[in-house]
Write a protein that binds this DNA or RNA. Structure first.
Length: 892
RNA sequence: GGUCGGUUAACUCAGUUGGUAGAGUGCCACCUUGACGUGGUGGAAGUCGCGAGUUCGAGUCUCUCACCGACCACCA
C-alpha cells in the first residue's frame, strides 16, 4: 500500500466539491430528525472575508457538524448583507476614481452598479466560505436585499407603522456631513480629542456693562443659541433669570432661564442653549418652549440663518466668530480641553447633531420584552458580562432612527401626496389613502441596514409566509457573534423575533473575542495589519487554520493571530496522518472486528479504550457547553500523547510478532482492532474542527483492505456517520489505567537513567525488575515486551519479589517496583549515592508535605473524604518508595 | 466620568465547582529505532502584577493599588 508521508492540503477543494455535490449540507424541513439551526451572521458585501469571519464561522461550523453527527437535522443558513451605507460609500468612492458621481448616473444607474458589485463581492465571499469548509445549506442562501427579505422588510415596516410604532418626525439626528445622511447612535464613535474650550460673554440686554460669561467648545453654534441657562439653585445668577442676553452677531435677544440640567459646579455654571444642534439643549428647549434655529446646511456649511456667516464652513465660522467676539470685547479666553467628539464610524467625519425629518421606531415597548428575556434568564450569554452589555443598552434605549439618505437599501414604503398626506403600503398605491390624489412620490430614503438584518433569523426561512422551513427551523439554537455588534444586531434580532414570531430567535448567544495581530492590535485596513484567511489556507490548508483558531483558546477572550502557531498545528495533523498510515500498514491481514465483539484485549488495549471513553464524554460535554477550546485541546493531546506516544509504541511488539501461536495471533488481532477503533473514534471527534483531513482518514480506516478506494456513491462521509458513543460498552477501566500509568512511570525512569548515562538508543540494555508484590509482578510481566521496546532493552527480567538484586546495577525506584539496570562499566558508586540521595530527599519532602496536611486537624475535618483518601494512598506509595531507596543506599 | 477584561516559564497562551502550577514555541543534551525529523527521548526554566483579607488550604473568592486594553457616556 502506498500512502504519501504527508497530507495533501490541496485535496480540500476536491473534498468540498464532493460534499456539495452529494448534498450533505442540505437540511430538510420534512425530516423527522430534531432540528438544529445556526444562522450565519451575514457578512457585508463590502470586501473579502477577514480573520474575524474565519473565527466566527469556524465556531458555527464546528457546532453544526457536531450536531449533524449527533443525528440532528442541522441547518447552517448562509447569506450576505447589503450593508447599506458601508457598501454605498465604497461604490461612491470607486465611481469617484472614474470621475463619476451618484447624480451623474442617477438612482437607477447607481443601483445597477451596486448590484454588479454585489455579484462580484457577494460571490467572492461565498467562495471563501466554501474554501474554509463551512457546511452551509447553499440551496437556501439568502441576501438581505433579495426578493424574500425585501418583502419581509416591507411587511415589518407597514405593520409597525400601522401600529403606530414607526413614526416620522423632526428630531435631532446624528448627521454625517460627508455622507450626507443620518446615522444611528451606534454608528457614532466617540473619541477623546484635544481641543479648546472658548470663554465668551454676552451682554445683558438693557443693562450697560453687565454681562453673563459662558464657555463653549463650538463657538459656531452661537448663531443658533436661543437661550442662556443657569442652575435654579445657583444664587450667583438668580437675579439674571428672566432677563435677556444679547447675541451681537445675530442681533438676537435670548432669555436667561433656569434649568436643572446645568451643573453649577462646572465651568462658569452657565450654558448657552442651542436646541437645534445639541441633544441636551434640545431637551432644555422642549422644556422651555424655545425656538429651534437650524444654522447648518446638509453639507455642514452655515445656512441663511447664520446671517453674515451664510456659506462658511463650520471651521471658518468658528474662527470668524471668535474674531468678531474679540473685536466686540466679548472674548475672554481659550483653554485646552480634552473631550469626546462624535465621529462617523464609516468615514471618520465629525458628526453634527441636526434637526431632520426622519423615520423612527419607537423603542420603549419593543425593548421591554427583550430586556425581560434576559433578566428572566431565558436569553443566555456565554459570559455574564456580555449580557450586561446587552442589558445596559436596553436600559438606555432611545428611539431608533431608521431612515438613511442613501440609495442602496430598502426604500422606505411611504408615499407622499401634494396635500401633505402620507400613505404607507407594501405595494406602491395608486392614490393617496387620505385624499385620493394620484400624484404620489415615494420617500427617497432607504432603511438602516440593521432593519433588515434584524429579521434575518426568520425572514431567511420564508417569513412572512408560513413555510415548512420556518416551522421546522425557527427558533434557531445559538447565535455566534463578535462582541462589537451586540446592540447593533443581537438586540434588534431579539425584539424583532419576539414581536413578529412571538418567540426568541435563539436562547444562547456565544460572543467570541476579536482576532488581533501579532502585537495585539485590531486588524484593520488602515493599519494594513490584516491577515487574509485565504493566504493562510493557501499555505497550510483550511483544517490547520480552523484548528489553530480554536485549539486551547478561551472563546470569549481576544486572541492574537500568531503565525508561529500554524506550524505546530500543521505538525499535529501530519502526526495524525502518519498515525493513520501506521495503523493502515498494520491492518493488512485484518478481517474486521466490530466494536463490542469479543476481542482478546490486553491491558494497554483496555487502558487506551478507557482513556478514549473518557475523552468522548468530556469532548461531548465541552461541545454541548460551547467550550470549543477545551474540546480541541483534549482531542489533540489524546491523539498525540496517549495514542501515538504510548499506545502505538506499546502495541508494536504484538503487531510485529511472527508467532503462529494462537494466543499471539489473537493478541495481534486485538491490537489491530483496538488501533482501528480508537483512531476512528478520535478522527470522528476531530471531524467538526478539521473536516477535510478527517474525511480522508475515516474513509481509509473504514475500508482498510483498500484505503485508496475512490469515494464511491455508496460511501457515507464522516459527517453522516455517528458521533462516537461508547455508552454501554463498558470501556471505563480504572484498573487498566492505573497499571499502564505504572508502566509509563517505569519506562520514564529507565529512559531518564539512559539519558543521564548517555546510553545511545542503539545500545540495548538489560533490565531487571523486582516488583513489590504479586499484582505488580503480573503487571510488569505482562508488559515485558512493551517495556523492552519503550526502554530500549534487549532483555527484561521480572524476578520474584524480594529476590536478590543483580550486582553492579543502577537502581531506579518506581511505584510498585525497583528496577535494576546492570550497566557495570557505567556505574559510578559516588554518583549513584548522590542520585539516590537526591531521590530520597525528594521523597522525604513529598512525605513531609503530605504529613503536614494530614496532621492538620482542619484539613482532616473539612477536606472532602476522597481527597484525604488520595493523599493517604500517595503517602503509602511514597513511603514504600522511600524505604526502597534507603535499602538501595545501604547497598551501595 | 462609568462599566468590563487582562496581568501565570524567554515568547504566545490554557488553567471548567478553591485541593501539591500546564501546553505549544524557543532553549540545552542525545537519537535517523521497520507511521511521522512537520519526528522521538531526557532536561533547564514560574515568589501565578503589588499589598491585604476570607479559608485547614487561594493562580482560582473579596478588597486596595499599579500598568495594559476594550466598551459605554450629553457635562457646556
Amino acid at each position: 500500500m502506498d500512502i504519501p508521508k504527508t497530507y495533501d492540503k490541496n485535496r480540500e477543494a476536491e473534498i468540498y466539491a464532493r460534499w456539495e455535490k452529494a448534498g450533505y449540507f442540505r437540511a430538510d424541513a420534512a425530516s423527522d430528525k430534531k432540528p438544529y439551526t445556526i444562522m450565519i451572521p451575514p457578512p457585508n458585501i463590502t470586501a473579502k472575508l477577514h480573520m474575524g469571519h474565519a473565527l466566527n464561522n469556524t465556531i458555527q461550523d464546528i457546532l453544526i457538524r457536531f450536531k449533524r453527527m449527533q443525528g440532528f437535522e442541522a441547518l447552517y443558513m448562509p447569506g450576505t448583507d447589503h450593508a447599506a451605507i458601508a457598501t454605498e460609500t465604497l461604490v461612491v468612492k470607486a465611481l469617484a476614481e472614474q470621475g463619476i458621481t451618484k447624480n451623474d448616473i442617477g438612482r437607477e444607474g447607481f443601483l445597477k452598479k451596486l448590484w454588479e458589485w454585489n455579484e462580484l463581492y457577494g460571490g467572492t465571499i461565498i467562495n471563501q466560505l466554501k474554501r474554509l469548509g463551512f457546511s452551509c445549506d447553499w440551496g437556501k442562501q439568502r441576501f438581505t436585499m433579495d426578493e424574500g427579505l425585501s418583502d419581509a422588510v416591507l411587511e415589518t415596516f407597514v405593520s409597525l407603522y400601522n401600529e403606530g410604532k414607526i413614526y416620522r418626525g423632526e428630531r435631532l439626528v446624528n448627521w454625517c456631513v460627508k455622507c450626507r445622511t443620518s446615522i444611528s447612535d451606534a454608528e457614532v464613535e466617540h473619541e477623546d480629542k484635544e481641543s479648546s474650550i472658548y470663554h465668551f460673554k454676552y451682554p445683558i440686554d438693557g443693562e450697560a456693562d453687565s454681562f453673563i460669561a459662558f464657555a463653549t467648545t463650538r463657538p459656531e453654534t452661537m448663531l443658533g443659541d436661543t437661550a442662556i441657562a443657569v442652575s435654579p439653585d445657583d444664587s450667583r445668577y438668580a437675579a439674571l433669570v428672566g432677563k435677556f442676553a444679547y447675541i451681537p452677531m445675530c442681533d438676537r435677544k435670548i432669555p436667561i432661564i433656569a434649568d436643572s440640567y446645568v451643573d453649577p459646579e462646572f465651568g462658569t455654571g452657565v450654558v448657552k442653549i442651542t436646541p437645534a444642534h445639541d441633544p441636551n439643549d434640545f431637551e432644555v428647549g422642549v422644556r422651555h418652549n424655545l425656538p429651534r434655529i437650524n444654522i447648518l446646511n446638509d453639507d455642514g456649511t452655515i445656512n441663511e440663518n447664520g446671517g453674515a456667516y451664510n456659506g462658511k464652513t463650520r471651521e471658518e465660522a468658528r474662527l470668524k466668530i471668535i474674531e468678531e467676539m474679540t473685536e466686540r470685547g466679548l472674548y475672554i479666553k481659550t483653554e485646552p480641553l480634552s473631550h469626546a467628539v462624535g465621529e462617523h464610524d464609516r468615514c471618520g467625519t465629525v458628526v453634527e447633531p441636526l434637526m431632520k425629518l426622519q423615520w423612527f421606531v419607537q423603542m420603549e415597548e419593543l425593548a421591554k420584552p427583550a430586556l425581560e428575556a434576559y433578566t428572566s434568564g431565558e436569553l443566555r450569554f456565554n459570559r455574564e458580562r456580555f449580557g450586561k452589555i446587552y442589558k445596559n443598552w436596553l436600559d438606555n434605549i432611545r428611539d431608533w432612527c431608521i431612515s438613511r439618505q442613501l440609495w442602496w437599501g430598502h426604500r422606505i414604503p411611504a408615499y407622499y401626496c401634494p396635500n401633505g398626506h402620507i400613505t404607507v403600503a407594501k405595494i406602491a398605491p395608486a392614490a393617496c389613502g387620505t385624499c385620493g390624489d394620484t400624484n404620489l412620490t415615494q420617500d427617497p430614503d432607504v432603511l438602516d441596514t440593521w432593519f433588515s438584518s434584524a429579521l434575518w433569523p426568520f425572514a431567511t426561512l420564508g417569513w412572512p409566509q408560513k413555510t415548512p422551513e420556518l416551522e421546522k427551523f425557527y427558533p434557531t439554537d445559538v447565535l455566534v457573534t463578535d462582541r462589537g455588534i451586540i446592540f447593533h444586531w443581537v438586540v434588534r434580532m431579539v425584539f424583532s423575533g419576539q414581536k413578529f414570531m412571538g418567540e426568541l430567535p435563539f436562547k444562547d448567544v456565544i460572543v467570541h473575542g476579536t482576532v488581533l495581530d501579532e502585537i495585539g492590535r485590531k486588524m484593520s485596513k488602515s493599519l494594513g495589519n490584516g491577515i487574509d484567511p485565504l493566504d493562510i489556507i493557501e499555505q497550510f490548508g483550511a483544517d490547520v487554520l480552523r484548528l489553530m483558531l480554536v485549539n486551547g483558546n478561551a472563546i470569549d477572550s481576544d486572541t492574537r493571530f500568531f503565525s508561529e502557531r500554524l506550524e505546530p498545528t500543521r505538525n499535529f495533523l501530519n502526526k495524525l496522518w502518519n498515525a493513520t498510515r501506521f495503523v493502515l500498514m498494520n491492518l493488512e491481514d485484518y478481517h474486521g472486528y466490530e466494536s463490542g465483539e469479543n476481542v482478546a484485549r490486553e491491558t494497554e488495549d483496555r487502558w487506551i479504550l478507557s482513556c478514549l471513553n473518557r475523552l468522548i464524554t468530556e469532548v461531548t460535554e465541552n461541545l454541548e457547553a460551547h467550550e470549543l477550546g477545551h474540546a480541541a485541546k483534549k482531542i489533540v493531546d489524546f491523539i498525540w500523547d496517549e495514542f501515538c506516544d504510548w499506545y502505538v509504541e506499546m502495541v508494536k511488539p504484538r503487531l510485529y510478532s511472527k508467532s503462529n501461536d494462537a494466543t499471539a495471533k489473537a493478541s495481534r488481532k486485538a491490537a489491530q482492532a483496538t488501533l482501528r477503533e480508537v483512531l476512528i473514534a478520535a478522527v470522528k471527534l476531530l471531524h467538526p474542527i478539521t473536516p477535510f483531513i478527517t474525511e480522508d482518514l475515516f474513509l481509509a480506516l473504514r475500508n482498510p483492505a483498500n484505503p485508496s478506494t475512490e469515494y464511491g456513491r455508496e460511501m457515507q462521509s464522516v459527517m453522516l456517520s455517528h458521533w462516537p458513543d461508547f455508552t454501554g460498552c463498558n470501556f471505563d477501566n480504572p484498573a487498566a489505567e492505573k497499571s499502564i500509568e505504572r508502566v509509563k512511570e517505569a519506562v520514564r525512569g529507565i529512559r531518564a537513567v539512559r539519558t543521564e548515562k548517555q546510553v545511545p538508543p542503539s545500545q540495548k540494555i538489560s533490565v531487571v525488575i523486582i516488583p513489590a508484590d504479586t499484582d505488580a509482578n503480573d503487571l510488569f510481566a505482562n508488559a515485558k515486551a512493551a517495556l523492552a521496546l519503550l526502554a530500549g532493552a534487549a532483555t527484561v527480567d521480572v524476578n520474584a519479589a524480594n529476590s536478590e538484586p543483580p550486582a553492579g546495577a543502577i537502581s531506579v525506584v518506581v511505584s510498585g517496583a525497583t528496577i535494576y539496570l546492570p550497566l557495570d562499566s557505567l556505574v559510578d558508586t559516588e554518583k549513584e549515592r548522590a542520585r539516590l540521595s537526591k531521590e530520597k530527599k525528594k521523597l522525604e519532602q513529598e512525605l513531609a508535605r503530605i504529613d503536614s496536611k494530614l496532621s492538620n486537624e482542619g484539613f482532616v475535618a473539612k477536606a472532602p473524604p476522597s481527597l484525604i483518601e488520595t493523599e493517604r494512598e500517595k503517602r503509602e506509595n511514597f513511603a514504600a518508595m522511600l524505604a526502597k531507596v534507603e535499602t538501595e543506599l545501604k547497598g551501595t
